[in-house]
């Protein structure tokens, strides 16, 4: 009986407590920089697309919401001909970001992407590409990888030794 009255009193005291609700459209809560929301495709510091169209993100995606097609440009650089994310399916698990070998695909703290029309949730490459390097400034995949493309021969990447000349490698 006493405990019932104490309960009622304690609940009544909540009249004077601070309300925990953040009144969303007026005030916004702090989103941690690594929170996983809208997906973007980043560019390397030189302004080129980071994505090398390896399909790892679409392979790892548990809901199959990423579609892309690979193409090569005249320099031999692979890039996605189209890159499509269906955000009405995306569960924002972040696996694509983990799988990406070039830091191209990244999840950002922006979550305000609601639409009235479901079709508008399908984002094409031009909607996804941003103009900066995202969370990884200074990283340029084509500069550090050993792969040979037009304008960068083998051994010309950063911290890469020139290839061994096998004809001079005598016993």
């Amino acid at each position: 009986m006493l405990s019932v009255i104490r309960t009622i009193w304690n609940v009544f005291l909540h009249t004077f407590h601070r309300r925990v609700t953040i009144q969303y459209p007026d005030k916004k809560s702090y989103m941690p920089p690594r929170s996983r929301h809208r997906i973007i495709l980043s560019r390397d510091p030189d302004g080129g697309e980071r994505c090398v169209a390896c399909h790892l993100c679409s392979a790892v995606c548990p809901v199959d919401c990423i579609a892309l097609q690979a193409k090569e440009d005249e320099n031999g650089r692979r890039y996605p001909e189209f890159f499509r994310i269906n955000f009405s399916r995306c569960i924002f698990c972040g696996f694509c970001e983990d799988a990406c070998p070039t830091y191209a695909i990244q999840l950002t703290p922006d979550f305000e992407m609601a639409e009235y029309n479901r079709q508008n949730l399908v984002y094409e490459k031009e909607d996804l590409l941003i103009d900066g390097p995202g969370k990884y400034p200074g990283y340029n995949f084509w500069r550090v990888s050993g792969v040979q493309i037009g304008g960068k021969d083998k051994g010309e990447a950063e911290n890469e030794a020139p290839p061994t000349d096998v004809h001079r490698l005598m016993p």
């Binding site: 009544f12 009249t15 407590h17 309300r19 925990v20």
Partner: peptide, 8 residues
Amino acid sequence: LALWQDRY
């Protein structure tokens, strides 16, 4: 109810 549950 909201007031006593610290909501609006």
